[in-house]
Structure formats: C-alpha cells, structure tokens
Computed example of a mutant assay.
Amino acid sequence: MENDQTRATITTAAATTGKEADHDDCHDLLIASLPKEKGWSSHQLYLYQGFWCPSVYIREEMAAQHFQARQKDIVLAINPKSGTTWLKALAFSILHRQHYTPSQNSPLLTSNPHALVPNLFLFQGFVDQDLNSNNAHSTRLLATHLPYHALPPSIKSLAIGCRIVYLCRNPYDTFISAWHFFTKASDSLEPLSLNDAFDMYCRGIFGYGPFWDHMLGYWKESSERPQKVLFLKYEDLKDNPILHMKRLAEFMGVPFSIEEENEGLIEEISRLCSINNLRELDVNKTGKFFPHFENKAFFRKGEVGDWVNYLTPEMVARLDKVIQEKMVGFGLTFKTSL
C-alpha cells in the first residue's frame, strides 16, 4: 500500500490544478511509489491497496471506487481463473431466463459471457444492461476480481445492501488454470515456467492476490452477512450443479418455480452454460473480447483435480504449508478432487 509521503505528494499535485494532465501525473507518481514484481501477463505487477495488479488496471480500479451501487445490484466476485466465465454465464442465464430460451435464443449462443456481464471498472461505458440507468428498480449484474476490502464503498455499504456472489476454487487447480491462461494464452509476454509461476503464487504474487487474502476476505463476510454475501465453491458446483444453481437463483432474488423445475429448465441452463458446450460455440472459438486473449483461451478443461498432472510432491507440500500457515483457523476447506 502506498505510504503517507506518497499520498501527501499525490494530494499536493492534485490540488495544484484540476487539469487532466495532472491527474495523469498523480497516477504516475502513485505507480512509481508501489512495490513491484515481474508480472504473469504484464511486464510488472504492482502492490496496490494490498493486492497485486497490473499498472494498466490501477487507474480503472481507482475510478471504480466512485461506482454508486443500488440495492438490487448483484456483484459477481471471483479470484482470477476460478470460474469467472462459468459464473457469468450461469448468473446471466438465471437472471434473464424469462426473456430467453436456453437452447434457442439465449445471448450466450452468439456472445461471449464476458460481453454480457461487464467488469466493474468497465461499467461506465457498458450499455447492454443499462448500468447507468436512472431506473432504480432494475437489477444490474456486474463482475469484479477485486478483493473484498478494495470494493467500492457503496457495494460494501450496509445501508445499500446490494448482493455479492463469490465463487471460490481450490488453490491447486486455480494455479494450474492461471499458469495455462496467463503464460500460454497471452500474446504479450514470454511464458513463465511452471516453477517460476508457482514460486510467485506461493509468495502471493498473483493478480488480485495473495489468493489467501482474496478468499478469506469474502469468506469472513459471507459468515457475518450470509443474506448479502453468497460463498459458492467451484467443486461443489461441479459436483451438484442443480442444487447450487437453485441456491444461486434464490440468493439473486429469482428462485426457480416448481413448474420450471418440473419442465427441466435448470438442467437446460446447466447444459447451456457448461464449459463443454460453451467451448464448441462459434463465438467462443474465434475473436477476442479482451485485447491480449483469444476467446477460446477462456475454455480449457474446467476440471477438478487437474493439478495432479503438473505439481510435484514437493510443490504440493509447499502449497499445503502456505495454506496451513495463512488460512488455518477460519473454517474454509477445499475439495481437490471429485
């Protein structure tokens, strides 16, 4: 986190003039003051507000702090490579099921899930869900990788009380998924070796990490405010998707009716949003929604337990030790196989 001297410098510079150029100078001053490490898919990661972030996103995260949440907003919060694409597809389909038939006219058939559920820092320019609408009664669905402590104040406000859905994936599979994605799918940098990436991960140097702080932040809030923070586990969702989709729908305020259950609508949505189905759609085979990543990069395996094909016993022992030291005593446990 930036020190007091840096904050004073930035405040002084900002007070000198209101010109946009000086805002850029303040941003540059902030970046220069932060601890930095080699990045996974960018040249550097910077420790900003207690989490690691590429410099290109810091300005957007700062701007996102001004986001004004509403009571009916639903925020999907996910550690990178922990099921973001899947959760976006499921939440969008559940929320909008009255308007689209899963197998016929769902927007997922022609749009990547990331194009349907915007990231928080993109909300100002996103119009498909009318996130800037004055209609206070609409339900807005958006997503973020931010740790809980760094969320905009309005999202955390007890007075506003919007809902947060957090999807947690076991750290072993999260690492393997991230290594494949950030070091092989990116076209911007030379790929990191498995050993180098693993060392960084165990030291907490991972986008929006350390992973243990990210998970525990939402875990604690879900324990204290279960009516406002739903904590889902990737492995549970894989093992019993129907049960946890029903939990998700109820939490979002749009529970499935008995008629919908009897008609098999939950199963239809589950099939539509499965990684195997999404991977085979033309829209996800070509093109790019994000500048440096092809759409197909978001659909690899999605399996539970794939880590056993990559991690050595020594690596497993080291990650076990990290989890024990950082997360013991909080009651959060992980399934590493099904």
Rank of each mutant, 00 (worst) to 15 (best):
T17N: 11
G125R: 11
F182Y: 14
I58E: 13
F126Q: 04
D306I: 04
T333W: 09
A150R: 05
K233T: 12
V308G: 01
E259Q: 13
I94H: 06
Q5N: 10
Q71I: 01
K238Q: 12
N277T: 15
S177R: 04
P241N: 14
M215E: 00
A69G: 12
G302K: 10
Y100E: 00
S106L: 02
D213E: 12
E294C: 10
F198P: 00
T101C: 05
A13K: 14
N105Y: 03
A150P: 15
R140C: 06
H149M: 08
T174C: 14
E268K: 14
Q129G: 15
K36V: 04
F51K: 00
T16C: 11
F330W: 09
I275T: 11
F182M: 12
N134E: 14
F123E: 03
G331I: 06
G331M: 12
S133D: 07
Y166Q: 04
R97T: 02
F121P: 14
K19A: 15
D22M: 12
E224N: 08
G331F: 10
T286S: 15
Q104N: 06
M200H: 10
K184H: 15
R247M: 09
F251M: 08
E263Y: 13
L30E: 13
L76R: 03
L319D: 07
G125C: 02
D213K: 12
K38M: 08
S138D: 11
H214P: 14
